[in-house]
Design a protein around this nucleic acid. Structure first.
Lengths: 209, 209
DNA sequence: CGATTATTTTGAACGCCATCGAAATGATCC
DNA sequence: GGATCATTTCGATGGCGTTCAAAATAATCG
């Protein structure tokens, strides 16, 4: 359930129960504990009670835990295909993660849109021009944080405010869109060409290693 | 027990049991689980079996967890005084943490030995000269990572290779020394003057807030 | 080699915690 | 206002995990 909430969105108890494949009563019990423990907060809205992580810090911690613990053993076919989808692309507190996020980071390093500095990257002039393609205006030298480790890929990807802005923009212009599996992301038809122009070598969605 | 191992040192099962105030058999049982879970490794030496964290990554994760969970409620006077000692100064995987580590970081920012950049600090020319006082030679511009959050202080402190080098050096020249409580650090007599010259405003050991 | 120390293994007891079905609460919809 | 849906509360069950004492193993010491 915590993993399902890692995109920073709010989900009602029932949805979380279904995803965790447990009874609603059980989910309710656990969610209460997580709220008591300060990891979750609850936003009552009508007959729904929306749960969400109390802060991005919690998401970071979870990502950190997942990174150290390594990939979980596959329990069922369903969770496996679900994992594959998330492995391809997903949002992590509103920035791109998964293979898509990693490839973006690598492509931009190789393509010279960003220059690696300690603990992150700074946007080059080329990067500045590339960002302008999707209507984002920044001064070159702007810093982009990197996420220390990525859960499924174990390599850096962009994080922080600018990463979020870009992700939002890519969703708005319709180059990427959210899948049916919560937090999953995939590339749209127009996005195929768009992202290449945006300096991202798009990975094949079929061949997820 | 994990907290006791956070300095990266190796401890035998018995010592860990005593610190955790549990029976040796119980400790052994738990330590075995932690090894199975990949958090600990064991180094058999004679009739002792030394346990240690498998990697610095585990220590970072623990620090992260402690930071998010906040200070634990005080259970006993003993654990409280122990906590106070660690709050004053301690090593975290071979770099200074606790109030001492935080003050070092703040003093150097104020004193101009380092300049804050994103996700860390870089050594200025003044810092270069200060480091030379203890026989450490670096080029100005050298990067010092910062630990995102400090468990007891919740403010940044130095981490990474250079922080470790300095800590080792301060121990070698005898300005700081390890206390009886594992991981605890305090300032020696000579260190009082030395650390001031080294650009650190030494906090009073008595008045730990 | 016997005594001592460090540690693990075994075995058993206890407690508690996760789980679920059923009932209760609360809110929406018609 | 009654029906339906989302969620929580209640109550009961089963299981499992933690714990420790005692015994076993292993290594050191005299």
């Amino acid at each position: 359930m915590l993993m399902a909430l890692m995109d920073g969105e709010s989900w009602p108890a029932g949805d979380l129960a279904r995803q965790a494949e447990i009874q609603p009563a059980t989910a309710s019990y656990h969610l209460e504990q997580l709220v008591a423990g300060g990891l979750l907060m609850v936003i009552p809205q009508g007959r729904h009670r929306y749960y969400r992580l109390t802060s991005p810090a919690v998401a970071e911690l979870l990502e950190h835990m997942a990174a150290v613990s390594g990939p979980a053993p596959v329990r069922s076919l369903r969770s496996s295909s679900q994992r594959d989808a998330l492995r391809y692309g997903r949002t992590c507190y509103s920035h791109l993660a998964g293979r898509l996020g990693v490839v973006w980071c690598q492509s931009w390093v190789d393509g010279g849109q960003v220059k690696a500095v300690d603990q992150g990257f700074i946007v080059t002039e080329r990067g500045q021009r590339t960002l302008r393609l999707v209507g984002i205006e920044v001064t070159s030298g702007t810093f982009i944080a990197q996420h220390a480790v990525d859960w499924t890929e174990r390599v850096p990807h962009f994080a922080g405010p600018l990463a979020k802005t870009v992700t939002d923009r890519l969703l708005t212009v319709g180059w990427i869109e959210r899948g049916t599996i919560p937090r999953s992301i995939h590339v749209t038809g127009p996005g195929q060409a768009g992202l290449v122009e945006f300096g991202i070598r798009i990975p094949d969605e079929r061949s997820v290693d």
